[in-house]
Each structure stands twice: as C-alpha cells, then as structure tokens.
C-alpha cells in the first residue's frame, strides 16, 4: 500500500516520518491496522531489533491480515488488542516499567499515534524522540471545541459531533495533549447552512 502524502499545513499539525531502526536496549512498537506494514518494513531493514521488541498491535478492520506476519518477526512480547482503549493500560504499564534506552515506534492511523505519543510523553519521553509513520486510513481524531467530546475516525468535513450533535468543520489545529484536531461549529453564523460533507483531502 502506498503511503499517503499529507498536504503541507500549519505548524501545529503533526508530520510523520518513516520508521528506522535505532540502537536501544528495548523497543516498544505500537501500531494499528495497516501500521503493521511499517513494522514489517522496519524488520526488513533490521530484523535483529525484534529480539528486544514489544509489539502492541490493534488490527481494527484488517482482522487477521497482518497478525501472523508480525508474530513471525519473533518479538520478545506480542500483544494483539481489540481496541486502543483496551490496550492503553498495558501501554502505561510498559512505559512505567521502561528504562533509559527504550525506543518508541508508532505506526498506523493519526489517532493511534497521537494517543500513544501522548502516553509516552506523560511517561517523560520528549515527543521529538518518538518515531512515527502514518499508514492506512487518513481518518482523524477530532475534539469538539464546544462540548469537548472526542469523535474518532472522522473522514469527512464537515462532520457531526458524536456527542453534542453540532456540525463541525475539521481544522488542522492539533493538540498533542488531547491527541486530537479541533472541530468548530460550521454554521454558527448562519444556523442550518451546512455544506455537504466531503471526504478529507478530496
């Protein structure tokens, strides 16, 4: 699957790179869905990394597509979770047990990477030291600035807040602390005048 090139944007919008092997005592790899492909590519450039790797993988709608291939990389620990929410306690535990020399690799959707990056930052790892690679869906994790509710996997602009029901437009302004983009009421100055939703980046 080819990688999506995000258009240039404002400076609060995250940018993602390509995972590369870095020397470390331990390697924490967190990925969802097609993010598995980034880990497989990483293994292709340095398979030895995985002897000290802990993979936390959330397949989402890819099901079993990547699970056995990831297991075949021989990670020291391998966890397949049903959702990010289900895995977050494990992520916190791993980060709280971590020592100097841990490398963190995040791959997959923006929502997954943002939330996992936030956990790593709270554990004291500077965000610039965390590697990220976007793969798969370009859906966004949005916070409604009005009710503060989070709507996951937003793929259109505008969209309806899943909590308060307001019609929100999708901003590129991004908060690492909230791991979310900002959604703002689109028809505040002309109630009811809501443009047809269009797919993001289309």
């Amino acid at each position: 699957m080819s990688k999506f090139q995000f258009p240039p944007s404002i400076s609060s919008r995250p940018v993602y790179g390509t995972l590369e092997p870095r020397p470390g005592k331990a390697h924490l790899m967190i990925a969802d869905a097609e993010g598995a492909e980034a880990l497989l590519d990483l293994a292709a450039s340095d398979a030895a990394l995985f002897a000290n790797a802990h993979i936390i993988y959330i397949p989402k709608d890819t099901g079993e597509t990547y699970v056995e291939r990831l297991r075949a990389l021989g990670p020291a620990q391998f966890y397949v979770g049903p959702s990010y929410a289900a895995s977050v306690q494990r992520i916190r535990r791993v980060l709280s047990d971590a020592h100097m020399g841990l490398q963190v690799y995040l791959a997959g959707t923006e929502g997954l990477m943002g939330q996992a990056q936030n956990e790593a930052m709270q554990a004291g790892i500077p965000h610039g030291a965390i590697q990220t690679e976007h793969r798969g869906s370009v859906a966004r994790r949005m916070q409604c600035v009005h009710c503060k509710g989070i709507t996951e996997d937003v793929t259109t602009d505008p969209f309806v807040c899943s909590h308060c029901g307001l019609n929100l437009f999708v901003r590129d302004h991004y908060s690492r602390r909230l791991a979310a983009f900002q959604g703002v009421c689109i028809d505040a100055e002309d109630p009811g005048n809501v443009p047809e939703p269009v797919e993001l980046y289309k």
Binding site: S11, H173, S175, R177, Q182
Partner: peptide
C-alpha cells in the same frame, strides 16, 4: 486546547 503548545504551534492558525 492550546495549553502545552510551543510558540509556533499556538500561533499556527
């Protein structure tokens, strides 16, 4: 929303 951001990030918009 902006708390914790650096100078360029909170002025991004």
């Amino acid at each position: 929303f902006d708390i914790g951001m650096d100078f360029f990030e909170w002025h991004a918009p």
